[in-house]
């Protein structure tokens, strides 16, 4: 596979700034949970992940209430089977996959086929981490166009793009969670980048129009 063994050359523009820092903290947190039965650590784990997981579940279930319920169910089970956390190698794929399976079971119980839905509305802003002062001048018009184009992407494409850009997941993590090939993730990302790029009017780059 082309993805394996290759160094990550480009800067992690899309990943939340403290991703690496978090990794060690997360290991620490997990140990506290499965070794010491630490409920406070468990609460922290929930608070760290609930936003992302609920928004993810909202792409698989028709109501926000159900999305919250699915994530709550996952956390109840995580606590009940907390000994199993010792064997977790990738917390991202572990949590997202658990949410996905729970959501699928909800759909099947309700007599429906599991499917990817449009999900929550996505807002866009200039990424202050990556932007230079000139970039802060990206015109409002362009931001508005990007935002509307993102929300109009086909639901699977939108979800994949969001998982990569907003949640900072790696392609192979997204592939594993959604049970698709890495090639599919790459193709969907390419479609998203193309569609979103096309709506940008570069003449408005510096926001003269405002």
């Amino acid at each position: 596979m082309w993805i394996s063994g290759l160094a990550y050359l480009t800067k992690a523009i899309f990943i939340n700034g403290n991703a690496i820092h978090n990794h060690l903290q997360m290991q620490d947190l997990l140990e506290k949970i499965y070794r010491d039965n630490d409920q406070l650590a468990f609460r922290q784990l929930f608070l760290q992940y609930s936003d992302r997981l609920i928004v993810f579940a909202a792409s698989l279930l028709p109501s926000r209430e159900e999305a919250e319920e699915a994530v709550s169910d996952v956390f109840v089970k995580i606590w009940q089977n907390r000994a199993g956390l010792a064997t977790v190698r990738n917390l991202n794929t572990y949590l997202y996959t658990a949410v996905r399976n729970t959501a699928c079971n909800y759909r099947i119980s309700a007599g429906r086929m599991p499917e990817i839905l449009t999900g929550e509305y996505i807002q866009v802003a200039v990424n202050t981490m990556a932007a230079s002062p000139e970039d802060m001048l990206i015109s409002k018009e362009n931001l508005r166009k990007i935002e509307s184009a993102i929300n109009l992407l086909p639901s699977r494409c939108k979800l994949i793009f969001r998982l990569v850009k907003e949640d900072g997941l790696k392609y192979r993590e997204v592939a594993e969670i959604l049970e698709v090939s890495i090639n599919t993730v790459n193709t969907q990302m390419a479609i998203a980048l193309k569609k979103l790029g096309e709506v940008i009017d570069i003449r408005q780059h510096f926001g003269w129009m405002e």
Binding site: Q123, V124, A125, N127, A131, R162, K165, E166, L196
Partner: peptide, 10 residues
Amino acid sequence: LLDKVSLQST
């Protein structure tokens, strides 16, 4: 330009 944009789900 697209690289400089960050997403925020509601």
